[in-house]
Design a protein around this nucleic acid. Sequence first.
RNA 1: GGAGGGAUGGCCGAGCGGUUGAUGGCGGCGGUCUUGAAAACCGUUGUGGCGCAAGUCACCGGGGGUUCGAAUCCCUCUCCCUCCGCCA
Length: 426
Amino acid sequence: MLDIKVMRENRDAVLAAMEALGATDAPVAQALDLDERRRQILGQVEALRAERNAGSKQIGQLMREGNKAGGQALQARMSEIGEEIRRLDEELAQVEQAFGDAMLRIPNLPHPSVPVGRDETENVVVRTEGEPRRFDFEPKPHWDLGAALDIIDFDRGVKLSGTRFYVLKGAGARLQRALIAWMLDLHTTQHGYTEIYPPYMVKSEVLVGTGNLPKFGDNLYRDAEEDFWWIPTAEVPVTNLYREEILDGALLPIRHVAYTACFRREKMSSGRDVRGIKRGHQFDKVEMVKFVRPEDSIDELLSLVDNAEDVCRGLGIPHRIVQMCTGDLSFVSAAKYDVEMWAPGCGEWLEVSSCGAFMDFQARRANIRFRREPGAKPEYVHTLNGSGLALPRVMIAVLETYQNADGTITVPDVLRPYMGGLSLIA
RNA sequence: GGAGGGAUGGCCGAGCGGUUGAUGGCGGCGGUCUUGAAAACCGUUGUGGCGCAAGUCACCGGGGGUUCGAAUCCCUCUCCCUCCGCCA
């Protein structure tokens, strides 16, 4: 959520930002109008309340003095004022509801450092690290490798749950588990993150906090009877860990890492990436989340990207960093970098991480604040998050990069201790 | 799932429907005293909205109601605790 004061004082700049994002400016105009109306009503209703408070106090006084007639006369007057207040309150509630709805639909403002661009074609490849492996045979895609090794069972996944589901088996299941454990250990022991195991189901207000609701509800699974929603990413529960709290500034930055399953409808991408394990309704991810002081936001974003890259480096897989232009920023991001791994079998760069800085956008929605000093005014924290990393796509990159001519897979060095010393999946 | 009991400020804990944003204690902060510390004593100590400001309004788990006036009465929801049942 944006600061309404900032919107009032910088109307033109905010509208220009919507233009750069390729977003409609309708909610901005709407929110500003409703805000004006809201303040108008507020002024009226509060003046009436003040009058009633004084009157009621006086009635109490008169009653105690035994002046019953005087009290009753005043009561009649206050009753009228009460009616007026009731009427205005009703209108105010409507206006505030509409105002809040509009505010929740306004995207974050891009950080000044973000390149202006129309869509993903204008994203910027910041750098590429590592040389793609040269093969003396034709590298196979993971769906062929996985099926041949009997470590990915696509047919039975579909039998159980339908399209976009698969089963990992034997060394395949263990490889994913090894990756999860190794990534968590890397981030907790080398990068200063504290591990969190959060709920996989959350209340709707939690999804509003991170910005998934109200706008993106159609990508979420939910319980039919109760207000339970399956998380689309660990970002949701972990960012909301400190919602409605005022944190001690001495604790910042707080860095958390969590491994969870993630659930997404993927309605928007029907027909895309249906082959293999690249895009499923359920996938595992290790996610990093940071709570930082406002002035540290951008530095923390860069180190977040670096933390994600360390996973690529450790696995010895070439990767590149792509900076999103304004037109490709997500709803909540002020700045965003993707980390992409090269997958030689399917021959594409796979997005394995998305690292975003949200400034105070989520903090306002979830009401997460901190105090610089004891006794200081509460301020909103800045939140960030990034995948560290998404498992299926790392699995793809590992299987395809480390494949041998005979169809076996060499296990990357860092993972061997996590696989009972196994060095070859055959 | 059944029965009962709770929810008040950082914490504990009061609060006949009328100067109660809320007694008191603890904790925190500032001060007096002290070579320093402790003790003692004095003071101070929530969040948010609107307003240039003076100020004003709201908030005692959430929502609704009764009333001139609600932390206090009524309805409802949520959460916590105890007991019974069930259970990985």
